[in-house]
Write a protein that binds this DNA or RNA. Sequence first.
DNA 1: GTCTATACTCTGATAGAC
DNA 2: GTCTATCAGAGTATAGAC
Lengths: 205, 205
Amino acid sequence: MKKRRPTKVIDQLDREIVLTSAARLFKIQGYERTTVKEIADACNMLPGSLHYRYKTKEAILIDLMRLGLEQVSVELIKACVGESNPAEQLRKGINAHLKVLVTGSDMVYVLLFEWRALQGDARKEMIQLRDRYEALWVGLLKPLAQKGIIHKDVDLDLLRLIGLGALNWVATWFTEEGRYTLEDIGNFVWRIIKQAVVVPGETDI
Amino acid sequence: MKKRRPTKVIDQLDREIVLTSAARLFKIQGYERTTVKEIADACNMLPGSLHYRYKTKEAILIDLMRLGLEQVSVELIKACVGESNPAEQLRKGINAHLKVLVTGSDMVYVLLFEWRALQGDARKEMIQLRDRYEALWVGLLKPLAQKGIIHKDVDLDLLRLIGLGALNWVATWFTEEGRYTLEDIGNFVWRIIKQAVVVPGETDI
DNA sequence: GTCTATACTCTGATAGAC
DNA sequence: GTCTATCAGAGTATAGAC
């Protein structure tokens, strides 16, 4: 009996290669301007082989976004787990989101900036996925409010929406060669939030 | 001698009709998914007539962005002129930016979200235009720092970049039917900024 | 599973009569 | 300035041999 790698493992590898290549192209050129031939070229496949994995170009985008959401969720959780101070959790979460969005996987960028390319049901599904990610942030912010670290009268939903917006937009102007490092930016956002909504002296609980 | 409207006036009217129609389509469908035929239909023209005004689809986008930038600049200036309190100028500026972006001209939305559709020189020109708009914000923030209303150690460039990012991202999730009005959102952002960077008691100068 | 070849559609742009 | 007709090119998806 011949020994061989389980089919599943090979498929998973292919999936990552295809989606990583596609994400880079989608980020640079945009989804619409990128052709399936370019994607195939980028992962050393012929268009026919790519079509064997994904029947349509849209299917690639959808699967890519699912993986991107998984990646950013994992990074956010990793950054907070093992940190007992909830204020520090928030600070680390901000830095993690920035890092994975800007210097990490292109899939997260595409997830956030190309959802308009999807229509109908697919768009709805992606919005639901995005909501699920944002629910992780609710889970970070709620304990801070309950413990009195964040002022009682701060609207947590608005804080999340505005805060994530501020972070997401960074991806539109950040460059490695710019004046600011990602840490500079993360620290700045953290300081703003801390000074605006955190009760003084409560960050060390 | 026949009396007739000066040619310039007619051209200017046509320009606004074309660009307004195009902006609405670009905002809903995105630039790439919108066809020149759709634009022509939307302004009751035939493709040939549209082509007489704009030789290429890209030329429409570029002119649209120029006009969008002009509009948002005018609204920002209008909101601040006649307000002597610099802190109040900032508050009104925030609301003006939000309003024109979200409920005002679709051109401003397109200006901010479709710059990736441009390539090469055209993209560089638009980035320069965006920088010119941001310079207006520098003009709002600098006096606040010089008068000691904003803490000396706040990086004004980061404050501008992060603040505008927070505002711009609102356009991706705001709906008229949602829980928050534009005023709610503007007030929230203003409060965050005020509590984070404004020296207490200095807002009434 | 992979590769070649191609069908079919759409679109931006143009030519030229009026 | 406007309209009809059309070209040339690009791009997605598919069929079918291997």
